[in-house]
């Protein structure tokens, strides 16, 4: 059912918006790459055909740095900087693939899956699934724990619905609403594990300041926000085979 969506996407998502500065030359995975100053390491890596996995970044929004799957290694820097929020510098030497990076990215993605409907993991198509494939993760080691899988679906809007069970709290919808639409109808409510996407002051989408422009739906990497027209006969959460 996602084929239409896949066809809708044109070109490659560079992860962060293009910039127009002076050319900067750097090395990504041993290959020389030149991008305008002000570009992110993520954009440079994508330009050099060494795409870094990502979830919270997309080239229509400013970098945010929340999902932590885009970690890379940069020579001479401590730790594992996020490729999306780190700007290129002349002569930078970036590594996007290593056993250590794989270990960390896998660890992060497993945390997502520990609060994601497992029935929706196999066979799905979304940016999240793309990232799962890229990182090579299909499950998680945590067993049953606290989760948001029973949070109610909000289908009040006539055009799209919000299924919080699939939400990874990447804030792309919130930022799309602000940056693309300028409406500020969405926010993240609560703190810590309780953080959740909310429309206005925790209202239903229909009762909120949402103007149904669809910017959030387009930005959502998990189809947690998704068009209703894609579901003939109404949206139903996938059933676990056992239940």
């Amino acid at each position: 059912m996602w084929s239409e969506l896949r066809d809708l996407r044109e070109g490659q998502d560079l992860g962060t918006p293009p910039r127009g500065g002076e050319p900067v030359a750097l090395v990504v995975d041993g290959k020389p790459v030149t991008v305008p100053a002000g570009s992110s390491v993520m954009l440079a890596a994508a330009t050099g055909r060494c795409p870094v996995p990502k979830l919270c970044a997309t080239d229509t929004l400013e970098a945010f740095g929340s999902c932590r799957v885009c970690l890379v290694e940069i020579q001479g820097r401590k730790g594992y900087p996020a490729a999306c929020t780190t700007l290129v510098e002349p002569g930078m030497v970036v590594t996007t693939q290593s056993p250590r990076l794989h270990e960390l990215r896998k660890g992060v993605v497993e945390l997502y899956l520990s609060d994601f409907p497992k029935e929706d993991v196999p066979g799905g198509w979304s940016e999240l699934h793309e990232t799962l494939q890229q990182v090579g993760v299909t499950g998680h080691p945590y067993g049953q724990g606290e989760n948001h899988l029973q949070a109610p679906v909000d289908d009040s809007n006539p055009y799209f619905l919000f299924d919080p069970a699939k939400c990874i709290v990447c804030s792309r919808c919130v930022r799309a609403c602000e940056e693309i639409q300028g409406t500020f109808a969405l926010t993240i409510q609560g703190r810590g594990f309780a953080s959740q996407v909310a429309a206005s002051q925790g209202e239903r989408f229909l009762d909120s300041e949402c103007v149904s422009c669809g910017a959030c739906v387009q930005a959502c990497p998990t189809h947690s926000l998704v068009e209703k027209s894609l579901f003939e006969g109404g949206y139903q959460r996938a059933q676990s085979p056992k239940a």
Partner: peptide, 21 residues
Amino acid sequence: CAVESCGKCTPCRIGSTRGRE
């Protein structure tokens, strides 16, 4: 950490709860 986390990044937002469990 699970209660006081700002909820922005995943290692802290979800990891702290998994850690407690």
